[in-house]
């Protein structure tokens, strides 16, 4: 299964450092598996959307989904 990953903040930098925004995952993989595969700290990924809808990290994306990972911003 292949998903397209986008992000903002540190996630964006990490993804831009890869050759491609596409990531291959096993069929039943969750968002948490994706985050781990990207070597990102799951605690620092706050919000996740799949095809524009906010989902939990246990969500299982499907082939062709667009996943948006957002870091936590909390400064004031």
């Amino acid at each position: 299964m292949r998903v397209k990953v986008k992000g903002v903040g540190a996630v964006k930098k990490y993804i831009e450092g890869r050759k491609t925004p596409y990531v291959n995952l096993p069929p039943e993989a969750s968002i948490l598996d994706l985050i781990k595969k990207l070597n990102l700290n799951p605690q620092l990924v706050a919000m996740v959307t799949v095809n524009g809808r906010v989902v939990g990290k246990d969500y299982k994306p499907k082939e062709g989904d667009e996943v948006f990972l957002m870091n936590i911003f909390s400064g004031g």
Partner: peptide, 19 residues
């Protein structure tokens, strides 16, 4: 609750990159 999810964490990326 949607923006910050369920993680038990009190600060974000600003701890590293400042403001």
């Amino acid at each position: 609750e949607l923006i910050y999810g369920e993680e038990d964490i009190d600060r974000g990326e600003e701890e590293l990159v400042g403001n």
